[in-house]
Amino acid sequence: MAQRPDELVELLPEAEPFLTTAEGSGDRRGPVLVHALSGDFDAASSAALAAAHLLATLPHRTVARFDADLLVDYRARRPRMSFSGDRYESFDAPEIVVSALEDDSGTPFLLLTGPEPDYRWEAFVGAVGRLVERLGVTSVVAMQAIPMPVPHTRPVTVTAHATRRSLIETYPVYWGDLRIPGSASSLLELRLGEAGVDALGVAAHVPHYLAQATFPGATLTLLEHVGRLTGLLLPTEALREAAEQHRTEVDEQIARSADNTAVVAALEQQYDQFTAAREGSDLLGSVGEVPTGDEIGAEFERFLAEQDRRPGE
């Protein structure tokens, strides 16, 4: 018999303060839930690294744990084990957890991290929705990253999306209708919106030639936009320094190849046309030679195919 959504997640004793506040809050504002599920929609592991940065720099405690054994395909991305001499010593089981953190001003918020579920998306989404209700969450914010034909030498752009336009009214709409591969995070936003919960997110645009590497600039941008959308004061200084150093290293590598230099120069020209057409915006505008839906879809498919060819992690 299939488990109910509630049976996929365990609330830990550390969740009690949120439960108490939610039950007797009245008009009191509850916490924001930020989610960063690692997987195919996390180019350069940008969102996963953003979540790891928050957990490494802010006070936190685990308040809920999902049954990853029911949600993750171990053969598709094999967990690591430690082997010593003639025996196995440990197993790094995947974890999907909700942590309670405090930002730099002491404001509490929640963070959902772990691998994107391979199985039972609807049940997983239902379980998250139940947590949103029980913990008094007021809005849910996604961090994602997608490969795009943009240069690393320009500010990182983002696609913003939300269940209500007013949640992201300062962000331009510059894509038309697209059909793209789905994700658990995207389904979560859709279902929360259908239930009347405010859900939104940003997807950082990662240069397609860095999508399989790391790109601290995208990680930094995600946290900056999450702060902008939620009012949370998130630590970014270390990431800013890492992004600057990474930019220098990539510049040096690109300079060694005339072909690579020409590709980046062409991307720079395209980017500059976008920003010139929409002066004063740090986001790509709706005019200029933006990639077509087919081109964007092809970029997704290339990235996903490369992900499939990678060895399990």
Rank of each mutant, 00 (worst) to 15 (best):
R154F: 08
H161T: 14
V158P: 11
W121T: 14
T159C: 07
S105H: 13
T107E: 15
P149V: 10
G136T: 01
R120K: 10
Y119P: 12
R130D: 15
P155S: 10
P108G: 11
P151L: 09
A145G: 10
A160V: 13
E122K: 07
T163G: 01
A162W: 09
D118V: 08
T163N: 04
M148W: 07
A160N: 01
A162E: 11
R164G: 10
F124M: 02
L101P: 00
A145I: 05
I96A: 11
E102G: 05
R120H: 11
D103M: 04
S99R: 12
T163R: 02
V97N: 09
H161I: 01
P151E: 00
L131G: 07
S105W: 05
M148K: 04
V128N: 08
P117V: 03
V132F: 00
L111C: 08
V156C: 04
G136Q: 08
A100H: 03
E116I: 07
M148L: 15
G126R: 13
G126T: 03
T159G: 01
G114C: 12
H152N: 08
I96C: 01
A123C: 10
V140R: 12
R130Q: 14
E133Q: 15
A100S: 15
T157V: 10
L131E: 14
R134Y: 00
L110K: 06
P155L: 12
F109N: 02
P147E: 02
A145S: 14
R134W: 03
S105Q: 14
E133N: 06
P115H: 11
A127H: 03
R130H: 09
A160G: 04
R120N: 06
P147C: 00
P108V: 12
E116M: 04
V125C: 14
I146D: 04
V137K: 09
L135S: 12
A100W: 05
T153R: 13
P155E: 14
A160E: 11
V98K: 10
R134A: 15
G129V: 05
V132A: 02
R134I: 02
I96H: 05
T107C: 08
L112K: 10
L101C: 04
P108N: 13
A160R: 11
A162I: 07
A142E: 06
A123M: 13
V98F: 04
E122F: 08
V150N: 00
R154Q: 12
A123H: 12
T113D: 01
V125E: 00
V156Q: 10
V97P: 00
A127M: 03
L101T: 12
V156E: 01
G136Y: 07
P151W: 11
A142G: 12
D103L: 06
Y119D: 02
T107H: 14
G126D: 00
P147I: 05
V125P: 02
S99L: 01
A145P: 00
I96Q: 11
A145H: 03
P149H: 06
R154I: 00
I96W: 11
G126H: 02
S105P: 03
L110Y: 06
T163M: 03
L131S: 06
Q144D: 13
E122R: 15
V128T: 12
A123Y: 01
V132Q: 07
T107I: 09
V98H: 06
Q144P: 02
A127C: 03
T153H: 00
V141H: 14
V128H: 02
L112H: 12
Q144S: 15
A123K: 06
P155K: 14
E116C: 04
A100I: 00
G106T: 10
D103G: 04
V128K: 01
T163V: 09
